[in-house]
Amino acid sequence: MTSMDLTKVLDKAWADKPLADVLGAPVAALKGVSDRDGELLKEAFGVETVADLADLKYVRWAQALAALAAVK
């Protein structure tokens, strides 16, 4: 299994937290996602946590499309 440097994807306050805590964290725990972005995601899609964002069907669809495009 490949390790991931969580400091590259999480704000400093969340980088040393257990993954279970990160999944329950607000989406603003992700580096580059502001509190306002989190509010807009909640308003538009009901996304409140990192886990909610990961489970969002539009995110999964976009990931699937990108994976299909990568297979040539």
Rank of each mutant, 00 (worst) to 15 (best):
L19F: 08
A66W: 01
D16I: 00
W61N: 13
E39S: 13
A67S: 11
V50C: 10
K31A: 03
G46F: 09
V9I: 03
A51R: 15
R60I: 00
V27R: 08
D16E: 02
L19N: 09
S3E: 13
K17D: 03
D52C: 14
T7V: 01
V27A: 01
R60D: 01
A29Y: 03
T49R: 15
K31H: 02
V50E: 11
D21E: 04
R36S: 10
L19R: 14
S34C: 04
E48Y: 07
V33M: 06
D16K: 11
L65E: 11
V22W: 04
D21Y: 00
D52I: 06
W14G: 04
M1Q: 12
K57L: 07
T2D: 00
W14A: 05
A13R: 05
Y58P: 09
A44P: 06
R36K: 14
A13E: 07
W14V: 02
A20L: 00
S34A: 04
D11E: 07
S34Q: 04
V22G: 04
K12H: 02
K12E: 06
A69F: 05
A62G: 10
V47N: 11
L68K: 13
Q63D: 13
A25P: 12
L41Y: 09
A54E: 13
A51D: 14
L56C: 12
L6W: 09
R60P: 02
A51E: 15
L53H: 10
K8N: 05
A29S: 08
L6V: 03
L6F: 07
A67D: 12
L56S: 10
Y58S: 12
Y58G: 14
A44E: 13
Q63N: 13
V59G: 14
K57I: 06
A29R: 14
F45M: 09
L19T: 08
F45W: 09
D35H: 03
L30V: 08
M1Y: 09
V59A: 12
D5M: 07
L30K: 15
T7R: 09
A20H: 03
A51S: 15
L10T: 06
K17E: 04
W61F: 08
W14I: 00
D11I: 02
L40W: 10
D11M: 01
Q63G: 11
A28L: 06
V59Y: 10
T49S: 15
A25Y: 06
